[in-house]
Nucleic acid binder design. Structure first.
Lengths: 157, 157
DNA sequence: ATCAAATAGTTCCAAAATGAACAGTTCGTA
DNA sequence: TACGAACTGTTCATTTTGGAACTATTTGAT
């Protein structure tokens, strides 16, 4: 007894592989965020809003997969600090429109230029790959993510 | 003003791609863990110990990238619940040897067979890929992770 | 027009995660 | 052999996280 080794299956390898990349990348995301006075969710939200002129909080939620409560609080702080502007959608008083303020844009640009920040590092990381490798990576990730996502509504009675 | 869209660079695509896969996978890891009365770190530790007959806590730390404190507490609970045995290394009273107990092994086997658990799902996810795709994924991940890891000791004066 | 169900977002709070300080051990070297 | 530095693991305090209940609004069916 106590002698058996559980074999390392491909599935476990997959999990570990993602875990490794993620731990190391997350570390830098965190560093970058903190260095600029932001939490990780805050930084994530800022990045997401930046890529669209206007975007509803709902959409940000869908893109970032942040839980509603986390998202709501992150937005709140960002608004208070003047990095984001919040305005009601024209004909829908339920949804919130989020817009990057000038201050937010400035901050984000600064972050992108920081030596050793995630942004720079991840650009360089992509540079290590051939175009084909990069495309295949994204494609494979899509396959895997989609698969897991379809498993969501399973198992409810 | 407020009109500019920040372009989505390859680096950001990379980050997002990993974020998406991770959020969806993590969700299932969490579900599986909770369904079996474990926290995510606890489940992670259990899996890691299971793949070696004996392993030091230090090594588990290196493999899982869990912070020391998190690891220590996770191990503590697992030991209390009798899933893991802890014993001092022969000639080193500092390091801790961790061993999966029979009870732990039993639990882990049960988890592996659970329909809809991460284990099953990730095996199936791998099944969606060709062998070549899978190998290339792991290889690319290694490239990226190694790159980030080398960036660790940078920036200290 | 009314009312129930769905939806967007907020608030609150308990659980989880982690950094930092600490205790004990080992190692190197003088 | 003695002492400082490095190392392994624990403890404690704090922050972060995210589920659940709630409010307000919208939608849809009757």
């Amino acid at each position: 007894m106590d002698k058996e080794k559980t074999p390392i299956t491909p599935g476990i390898k997959l999990l570990r592989s993602f875990a490794r990349v993620n731990k190391t990348m997350t570390k830098f995301v965190q560093q970058t965020a903190i260095a600029n006075g932001l939490s990780v969710p805050q930084y994530t939200v800022l990045l997401t809003v930046a890529s669209e002129k206007k975007i509803t909080q709902k959409t940000v939620g869908e893109r970032t997969f942040l839980p509603k409560s986390t998202l709501s609080q992150a937005v709140e702080v960002l608004v208070q600090e003047g990095l984001l502007k919040r305005q009601q959608v024209e004909d829908n008083r339920r949804e919130m429109q989020l817009i990057l303020s000038d201050k937010g844009l400035t901050l984000l640009k600064a972050i992108h230029q920081q030596e050793g920040g995630v942004h720079q590092l991840s650009e360089k990381a992509v540079g290590l790959l051939t175009d084909q490798q990069f495309e295949e990576l994204l494609e494979t990730h899509r396959t895997i993510a989609s698969y897991f996502e379809t498993q969501n509504e399973q198992g409810e009675s």
